[in-house]
Design a binder for these strands. Sequence first.
DNA 1: TCGATAGTTCAATAAACATTGAACATAGGA
DNA 2: TCCTATGTTCAATGTTTATTGAACTATCGA
Lengths: 125, 125
Amino acid sequence: MSRTPHHPTREQIELPMVLDCLSDPIRLAIVYQLAQQERVSSELRCSDFSALSGKSNLAYHFAKLRDCGLMQTRVAGTNRFMRLRREDLEARFPGLLDAVLSSAAKDADRLPLLPECELVEVDRK
Amino acid sequence: MSRTPHHPTREQIELPMVLDCLSDPIRLAIVYQLAQQERVSSELRCSDFSALSGKSNLAYHFAKLRDCGLMQTRVAGTNRFMRLRREDLEARFPGLLDAVLSSAAKDADRLPLLPECELVEVDRK
DNA sequence: TCGATAGTTCAATAAACATTGAACATAGGA
DNA sequence: TCCTATGTTCAATGTTTATTGAACTATCGA
């Protein structure tokens, strides 16, 4: 029924939940890929992550990433567009997201799923 | 038999394990307390954390913190002295530990166990 | 040598977690 | 209107996790 899934407010974002979310390799890869893509487009669709796992498993991880405040989902027709909640994260925990992302980038070849995170060509309206 | 418990080398420290370790409120409080204490003394004994949980549960969390490379245990007689592996963490993931610690400090009143982390008077030889 | 102190290890338990496939809902295009 | 594409939800499964208390080990000091 809910047009838009639930998201916590900025103030509701909690540090342990954020760290726990980022500690899962699939979720870290999702966040990493969203961050990679940010220069090109701030949003990606669920199907852009299909290299990482199956549909229903991804839906599970997307829900966790939303619940902890790391990303936001916008419903548009039959698609869901996801983007990082960069400003909210930065306001709550300054420097944290960038520190995690640069750590992940540094270890990209040692983290199982990051190499799959190639830039996706984005040409949607 | 092992005089000194096992610790990973600097290169063996893995990002997901570190983040997972820090996502637990008790372990985050242990790391936070170790960091607080650093100006005074770089080491604390297990019993200095007794406000956080029971002995055997603490031993469990200490083992996880050692296994992921966040801290080091030095055995001295009947005591174990723990300290943060700051330099190793900084070398592997620059800025990460400080970002987490300052995030925790910012939220200290919202994180259940951090207020218990008062400075402990250290006067041991 | 005895007793107290400091921690670890073990077994048991309950809760949370990740993963899978099947069923379902919704929107868009032929 | 039907078919297809996109994602979510649900139930089932097996794994990992945190927590507890009891038993154990090792060291220090009287």
